[in-house]
Nucleic acid binder design. Structure first.
Lengths: 269, 269
DNA sequence: CCTGTTGGTTTATTATGTGAACCATCGGTT
DNA sequence: AACCGATGGTTCACATAATAAACCAACAGG
């Protein structure tokens, strides 16, 4: 592995639940030598990608990423442009909507919107990685990635939090297949308790999966009617978002979506 | 120089005006070998910090920075928290307000706000680096950094755009000294034509300069009254922003600011 | 006063990154 | 078509730069 990759791997260790990390812990987590780790972090600090808290000497993500992010949004406005659509989706469904992106093989929630309607909401945190195996977004994207992607996930841990629905390998394969066959994915109580989640994949101009659009609904108030309308609203919103990007779903998915949107029409050979 | 630093230097080449760069040009700009450059970029791509446009093969900033930026804002909400204050400042002054941060020795505009009032506005672009020598923000921060910082700037080019006020070395020294002596900086026609700019430095909890808060006013409509009120409004807003961060100006600056805010009171020994 | 932390530094060893030269491909000119 | 000057990408001998282990000073708790 290249040295640069090692340094960048260190960045991946910073998460929402672990935003500041000391040198020793960082070395432990990354499996690198402390001296190595120190040097790498020093270089990251030098460029502002990471900064060191003066009091505790812990490291945390630095201000340079803000410039890069602003520049990214200026060149490829994926996030900001999609936000209004996300908000409309949240308003229409009355549930939390969120969009996640496939970055470096991981699924990262980058934007979300809450409905104004209900007091109870499914809360989301951005900048968090979603596990492929336990989220509808994960299933939705896996359905349209190379088979190797699913294989990689199956090699990893498939644990769900205690009290939630466990996911076995066969289970996951079936869920991903179902997501592909149906055009959208649905999960319940796999990632968060009492949350039912619906998701569709998002594609770029090259027809590559880029991420997923999802609605996370409070299970107790999920009606049968909502079970039918939410996928339709998801599909409509996904189309809007992809239109912004110049992306489009593969023909196969497009056909599935049309069936979902117009369930009364029979497909005519 | 470490390999990681070289890779990160490549990231710095992407700017607002040059958001996508091909391999050869990147190697030229960075002064590295093409093969080296290729390998470094490949590693950056692998981690999503950079992505390659499929059609042109050019590189651009990748989606991974969005996660990092969201994480940064979640850990240290400098930008988002200050935004309302910035907007209030823009509204109060009727001019464009912007905040820039000192990151890795460079001054980067990270947020700005426009006034609703006037049709004519000084436009800003975020994620752009401000030249120290030609901006009031630059003078403001240089006044409170180590002398070496000013020395470094004096070593570099002091050019201004054609038609604008040129800045000599002595000039710059005098301007920085004035900014320090007065507690705020003021420039006219050095960075943009017909723009007068006012700025104050911002400090963190350790008393280190972190950036600058500035108001960029359209010179034609700048009244004598505004010349007096804008610095006061800047100071008030800077105090608010620093309060959010837990920062505070050094005692010397604090005293200067008090004099500016209450110009009628005589300082009593 | 011992023990286990922490962040940080030094060293010889060696793995890693490097630059020059090379290829294949593209788009425009002659 | 043949040529030119670009481009992105690859190869390989060589030297620089990264590494791991051991060490240090400082701190906290028992």
């Amino acid at each position: 592995m290249g040295t640069t990759s090692k340094a960048l791997t260190l960045l991946d260790l910073f998460t929402r639940s672990r935003p500041q990390i000391g040198l020793s812990e960082l070395a432990r987590l990354s499996g690198t030598n402390k001296a190595t780790c120190y040097r790498l972090m020093s270089e990251l600090v030098e460029h502002g990608l990471v900064e060191q808290v003066v009091s505790s000497k812990e490291y945390r993500i630095g201000p340079a990423v803000l410039r890069l992010a602003a520049l990214r949004e200026a060149t490829v406005p994926t996030r900001e442009a999609a936000l209004p659509i996300l908000q409309a989706l949240a308003a229409a469904t009355g549930e939390t909507a969120h969009m996640s992106h496939l970055v470096a093989g991981q699924l990262v929630t980058l934007s979300f919107a809450y409905p104004a309607a209900h007091g109870m909401r499914v809360m989301m945190e951005d900048a968090d990685r979603l596990p492929f195996h336990a989220t509808s977004s994960g299933h939705a994207v896996l359905g349209w990635m190379e088979d190797a992607a699913l294989a990689r996930v199956l090699e990893g841990p498939l644990a769900t939090a205690p009290g939630l629905v466990p996911v076995t390998a066969d289970d996951l394969r079936a869920r991903v297949a179902a997501a592909r066959a149906r055009g959208w994915a649905e999960t319940a109580n796999t990632f968060e308790a009492d949350v039912s989640s619906f998701a569709v994949p998002l594609f770029d101009a090259q027809g590559q999966v880029q991420g997923a659009l999802a609605v996370a609904a409070a299970a107790p108030r999920l009606t049968d009617a909502a079970r039918i309308t939410i996928p339709r609203q998801l599909i409509a919103a996904a189309r809007e978002i992809m239109a912004l990007w110049g992306g489009h779903p593969p023909a196969e998915l497009s056909a599935l979506w049309r069936k979902t949107e117009q369930p009364t029409e029979k497909v005519q050979g």
